[in-house]
Amino acid sequence: MQVTLENVTHTYQPGSPFQATAIRNVNLEIREGDFLALIGHTGSGKSTLAQHINGLLRPTEGRVLLDGKDIHQKGYDKKEVRRKVGLVFQYPEHQLFEETVAKDVAFGPKNLGLSPEEVSERVTEALRRVGLGDPALAEKSPFELSGGQMRRVAMAGVLAMRPQILVLDEPAAGLDPQSRREMLDMISDLHRQGTTVVMVSHAMDDVAHYATRAVVMEKGAIAMDGAPEEIFRHGEALEKMGLDVPSVCKLGMYLRENGLPFPQDAFREDQALSAILTLWKGGKRHGAQ
């Protein structure tokens, strides 16, 4: 399962006074098994890009290919795209509408035209996956739940469609630290079990910790694309784009400025720990001589 964006340009309200080009000439290949973090500040075009991956937005120019086939070509079944590529919007809990949690989660699978047995099996499985396996909870109204639980129900609603690619727009926005970690661990588990993940995120520490690939967007174009250790090597460039860098990168930048050989590619806490200890032991030996 692979999605390819070929020279994709998207212009909102073309021909009107509000015309705005959100992304321009984007080429991107999302490979099976990626945990791709889509980075960029608000207005950089990352959400627009995300909505092209499952065909919600149609490129003004260019093509979106799913396993080599143009999804906007005549005769291509849109349901096929929806089934394969799941999209979780920001604050997804705001889309809940059914009387019960189970019914809400069933909405997607039902739309796929699955049998009632299949639907109910998927609902149970999806709720279990998001840590809401309690059957009593499935019969509750989603509006009685806490904010964090509502977000999980919304996630389950997309997971129940069993997408092979999961696109998430800031899944942890507004969550407190603990719930944030739980949410990201859950996504990471899905990734480990074979789902390709595309995650729009502002939180660089999260990107450093979870992603296998990072794509940086600026002004509607892809500015950087590579493994996190390559991206975070360019801390100064990221800061120039108005983005944060992981705190370990910041520390590294300061230390290198002061002449200490802190490795360029360290960006996670565990890497910082061993790098500093190496420096310290080296320094001690040096001092002892």
Binding site: Q51, N54, L56, K79, R82, R83, G86, L87, F89, P92, H94, Q95, F107, G108, K110, N111, L112, G157, V158, M161
Partner: peptide, 14 residues
């Protein structure tokens, strides 16, 4: 907001 919800439900096959 309506536009966003509509898109989100479309993504769920609505």
């Amino acid at each position: 907001e309506a536009d966003k919800i509509m898109k989100a439900q479309t993504a769920r096959g609505a």
